[in-house]
Each structure stands twice: as structure tokens, then as C-alpha cells.
Write a protein that binds this DNA or RNA. Sequence first.
DNA 1: TATAATTAGTTAGGATTTCCCTAATTAAAT
DNA 2: ATTTAATTAGGGAAATCCTAACTAATTATA
Lengths: 139, 139
Amino acid sequence: MTEKKEHLFIVFEKLIKSKSECSCEILSECGFSDITVKQIGYLRVIDEHGELTFSRLARITRNSKPTITEMVNKFVKMDCVYKEKSPDDGRIYYIRLTEKGRKIARSEENALLKVIEKMAGSLDEKEIDTLIDLLEKIW
Amino acid sequence: MTEKKEHLFIVFEKLIKSKSECSCEILSECGFSDITVKQIGYLRVIDEHGELTFSRLARITRNSKPTITEMVNKFVKMDCVYKEKSPDDGRIYYIRLTEKGRKIARSEENALLKVIEKMAGSLDEKEIDTLIDLLEKIW
DNA sequence: TATAATTAGTTAGGATTTCCCTAATTAAAT
DNA sequence: ATTTAATTAGGGAAATCCTAACTAATTATA
């Protein structure tokens, strides 16, 4: 049994490594190989909230407003984010992701998607069903 | 087919999330919830090299020797690492991981192991064989 | 064998960057 | 006139590196 577990370990390790290679690739495609985990986290927060203002992002991330201004300016320079003036209230700017910013924010999901594509390409429908059934049994 | 891929995605996402929760748990068990990716990387380098001196670690990580002294001192304070004087040459110290340091260095592997244990507990032998077969087909 | 040269690690001190802040300011809305 | 949203100015603290100078141990040499 221990042997089987080892085998499972090896197979899943390969899968996880493959996924993390994909996500590194996505980051380096965007030219952000040295982006920090924290920065990606902020981009995800921006991605997850639709109409996000500076004040709201400050509240959500528990930072001061100047900190957010600084952060957003940095993201704008990196071409991850742009500001959109509210049509209703001239004081307000919405923080929006660019294509690049969204790519980074969703790099983990996209990496998994790529791996799933590969899987779907190597297995037939019946095998995929079996795989899903097996993995659903676990949780 | 797209539907099946989505299903696969959901199942694997759950698996990956479960693994990353395990590794976060390991870090917080050790009291290092705010350890950096870089620091874990250095602990891994230490783990992977048997007889590792300060100079050698400086060469491997392309840092100056004082940087290594500083880094090792920090790790010693964190109880991740200890220094062992060489019996043959009084100038040399070997950098060794403590139990805690090794736990952190291998947190990813250990998290995967925990997930595998759970799998092995939920599937019978035949199912495990099927799972391995399917995943091996992919690469 | 005494001493000069070399090597391993440490100390002192500093440059740069990151990450966050408060207080004051500008512009728009109420 | 007051309130609110974002910005600007200025700065503190910590992280992350470095070079130069030093101590102690080893090795080479005359």
C-alpha cells in the first residue's frame, strides 16, 4: 500500500509541477517574473470586485488611501490596471484591470485550465468520467 | 466536452486548494505564517545540500558572505537552522536544518503527502490503480 | 619551526527599496 | 459651508543587499 501511495505521490507531484510551470510561464509572458505574492493578491481583489473605488479598496485591504494611490499608480505603470472616472460622481475613480492585469490575477486558474486541456486531450470521454468519479469520491 | 472539462477543473481545483491549505497549516503550526517565499527557498537549498558551509551557500545563492551570516543568524533565531563546527577545520561551520526548518523546507511535499493519505483512505486498491493509470496517460 | 599568506566567517556601516503611515491639499458633491 | 474622494508631500521602519576591515584557523614556505 505504501508503494501505491508513493506512486500516487509521484503522479500528482508531476501534475502540480506542470501547473506551476504554466503559471510561471504566464507571469514571464507578461514580463513580471519578479512580481510578489502580495501584488498578485491585490490584483485578485481588484478582479473579484466589480465597481471598486480607491476608498473601498483601502477598506478591504486595511490600508490607508495614500497607500492605495501609490499601489494603483505602480500597477498603472506596470500596465495591469487603469483608472476610469465615474460618470455620476467626478470625485470617484473605478479601478479596472487591463487584459494583462486580469491575466496575472487569474494566472493560477489559467494554469490549471491549461493542464486540464492537456488532460482532456490525452484521455477519452469514458476515462475522463472515471477520473472525475474517482476524485469526487475523495472529498 | 467543455462541460466535462469544467467538471475536471472543479475537481482538481478542490484538490489543489486542499493541498495549499495543508501547507499553510504546516507553516502556521511552526508559527511562521508570514515567512517569505524567498526564505523557504533558502531553507530548501540548505535541505538539498548535505555538507553546506557559509561560503558554499554564498556561492550557490550568489550572495556575499555577510549576507549569508545575516540570513543564517535570522534562521537560527527562528529555530530553523543551527551551526555545527567542522571537526576537521576549525574555521568551517556547517549549516544544518532543525526539525522545524526541515518541516518548512519540505512543507509542499508534506502537504501533498497528507492529501495522498486522504485519497488512499477514501479509495480501494483497484480504484487507486485506475487513478494512477489515468494520470500516467496524460504525460 | 617560525612566520607569511590564505581561507572562513564576522562585524561595522551604509545604500536602496519596500511598505506603510499622517497631515495637508484639491476638486467635486451635498 | 460642509463633507467626501483622491492626491501630494514627507517621512519612519524594516528588509535586502553590499564593501571594507577584522579575527581566528590553517597551510605554505624559508
